[in-house]
Design a protein around this nucleic acid. Structure first.
Lengths: 128, 128
DNA sequence: GGTTGACTTCGCGTGCACTCGAACTGGAAG
DNA sequence: CTTCCAGTTCGAGTGCACGCGAAGTCAACC
């Protein structure tokens, strides 16, 4: 068995590639407190662990669901405070989930409008 | 039967209220070419017809589904050109619908992440 | 006939989320 | 040792979609 514990650390560029953000954004997220200060190597270059990448991935999902950076920062702060904030973090996610669900409902409605318009155009094209 | 053809025209304020946009936005949309120049009354004040309101409503749906104003402008231009652009307009809607559908699929995925996190928090809260 | 209030145009300001340029540094390859 | 590249900090710039204040106009009401 060769279970190496060696933390495969990544550079900004590699981490950015992995999570689909730019290096600019990664540094900026850190500066904005969305990410805890990332470890550095001997040359003060950032080295991202798998845990860092997982965290960043979560951030991209929150972002994609429309969570403002302001809320992501609050969440990050809570996460840094440990288990005492578990309930609060869950509440934040539940609130956010509700928003996502109503967003999805909106999209369903909007989709109906699109379908209706497409049908209309199709008919109008036929009757020319 | 009392089918009145009288066009119930609305002021900016009323139209804004109806479609859920501000008066600022309504004027700005017009300036940006998203809306054909709106009719005016004797005092040069805008008067919105039901057709104008319907159009604005459609714009809000396109907007809400994430269509950039740039595309909405292109669409508005085509609409002003009449039947010759019917097919192009349909194509535009079909492309957009595809985007909306994949956006919805994304949200479904993101929802899974949220649910997973909420479950985890719930478990962590129990095992304290 | 004065006040009120919603309208007009114009252009500058705001918030958000990046995005980039400049000037520099440090390790690795040839 | 030079070249090269990916990294560093800092602050300024960008794109989008509005939001708003100022100064003026106009119809309606008291």
């Amino acid at each position: 068995m060769d279970i190496t514990i060696r933390e495969a650390t990544l550079t900004v560029g590699e981490a950015a590639e992995r999570v689909g953000l730019t290096t600019y954004t990664l540094r900026w997220y850190e500066q904005e407190g969305l990410v805890a200060p990332v470890g550095r190597d001997s040359a003060r270059r950032r080295r991202y662990t798998e845990r860092d990448v997982d965290w960043l991935f979560l951030l991209t999902r929150l972002r994609r669901t429309g969570m403002p950076l302001r809320d992501m920062r609050r969440y990050a702060e809570m996460a840094r405070q440990g288990d005492a904030t578990l309930a609060a973090r869950r509440a934040l996610f539940e609130t956010h989930r509700a928003r996502v669900l109503s967003r999805m409902a909106e999209l369903e409605e909007d989709l109906k409008v699109l379908n209706y318009k497409i049908d209309n155009y199709r008919r109008a094209e036929e009757c020319r």
